Simulated assay, not measured.
Amino acid sequence: MTSLETLAKTLLELHQPGNPVVLPTVWDAWSANIAVTAGFSGLTMGSHPVADSIGRADGEGMSFDELLARVSQVTASVEVPVSVDIESGYGLEPLQLIDGLLAAGAVGLNIEDTVHSEGKRLRGATEHADLVRGLREAADAAGVHVVVNARTDLFLRQDGEESDRLDRAIARLTLAAEAGADVLYPVGRHPDADLRRLATDLPLPINAIAQPGTPVKSHFADLGVARISFGPFLQAALGTEATNLLAAWK
């Protein structure tokens, strides 16, 4: 069995600006095996599709233990590195989060700055960076370089004035980079010019969200993106296809 440290190193090395790794967003062992059989070398588990798969709501409607149960099933069934969306951290300490993920076999995480357990407030930029720093220190203490993908929800929430939102996101994510993040995730659908600027001005590889089908990987590569994931869109596309298949049998 491949060691966690080797899997973490592999995951980190896959992030190449201009040659993005596509990490299909999966939610259980079935979807994970479909993605690996299709030839993908890493996976991410999204909170929204995982929650949907167990009848819970996104936004920490499931517990961290429920999430870890799914993660363990996925990592037991595939040999590729797995990153996990841990939302805003479930109100837990960094050491608890890192220990739980490593015990479940995950080697990467997404951490967002919307605090679901506190009325969905937005963490301050320094506060979010401090959480990233805590996660990095906990991972270092565990001896595994867990790949930390620091996310900001500024665009998703349309927080503050649009005129300076891009600048604020860059400043916020730069603090996260300085605190020990490996990847930066300005989640949302961005105009090409904005995505290019994010890829250019941020000091670390960036993650872009995509919808299966279009635009193609090369489009994101040209913009300097290093990582592509699908959020809830892959599961939604499969759900639509399943609905169409079943419609003929009603």
Results as ranks from 00 to 15, higher is better:
Lys9Trp: 01
Asn244Asp: 10
Ala69Arg: 15
His219Thr: 12
Leu238Gln: 12
Ala106Cys: 05
Leu109Pro: 12
Gly188Arg: 04
Thr174Val: 06
Gly61Arg: 09
Gln235Gly: 10
Gln73His: 12
Asp164Trp: 01
Leu246Val: 11
Ala51Asp: 04
Leu67Glu: 02
Ala236Val: 13
Pro215Leu: 02
Val225Arg: 07
Trp27Ala: 06
Gln211Thr: 14
Gly105Met: 09
Asp153Thr: 00
Pro205Leu: 05
Glu241His: 11
Ala169Ile: 02
Ile34Gly: 07
Pro205Lys: 13
Phe155Leu: 00
Gly143Arg: 12
Ala51Arg: 15
Ala69Pro: 14
Met1Ser: 10
Val50Ser: 07
Leu245Asn: 13
Gln235Arg: 15
Leu131Ala: 05
Met62Gln: 07
Pro20His: 06
Ala103Lys: 14
Ser63Glu: 03
Asp182Tyr: 10
Ser163Val: 13
Thr200Asn: 12
His48Ala: 04
Ser83Lys: 12
Asp201Met: 10
Val216Arg: 15
Thr75Gly: 04
Asn149Gln: 13
Leu166Pro: 09
Ala35Tyr: 08
Ile86His: 05
Ala242Asp: 10
Gly100Cys: 10
Arg136Ser: 08
Val225Trp: 02
Phe233Arg: 15
Glu112Ile: 00
Pro186Tyr: 00
Ser117Gly: 13
Ala171Lys: 13
Trp27Phe: 08
Ala51Ile: 09
Val115Trp: 04
Glu241Ala: 13
Arg172Tyr: 00
Gly160Asn: 01
Ala248Asn: 10
Val115Met: 02
Gly160Ile: 00
Ile86Thr: 05
Leu109Glu: 01
Thr2Asn: 09
Leu195Gln: 09
Ala208Phe: 11
Ala125His: 03
Asp222Phe: 04
Leu14Trp: 10
Gly160His: 01
Leu11Ala: 01
Ala103Trp: 05
Arg197Ile: 06
Ala248Ser: 12
Leu43Ile: 07
Gly55Glu: 08
Ala169Gln: 07
Thr114Ala: 00
Thr10Pro: 14
His190Ile: 05
Ala226Pro: 15
Ile111Gln: 01
Trp30His: 15
Val22Thr: 11
His145Pro: 15
Leu246Ala: 08
Asp99Met: 07
Gly239Gln: 14
Ala199Gly: 08
Glu137Asn: 14
Asp99Arg: 14
Ile209Lys: 12
Thr6Leu: 09
Phe155Ser: 00
Glu112Val: 01
Thr10Ala: 03
Leu173Trp: 02
Leu97Gly: 04
Ala35His: 08
Leu23Val: 05
Gly143Thr: 11
Leu223Glu: 03
Asp164Val: 11
Asn244Val: 12
Lys120Met: 03
Ala35Phe: 06
Met45Glu: 06
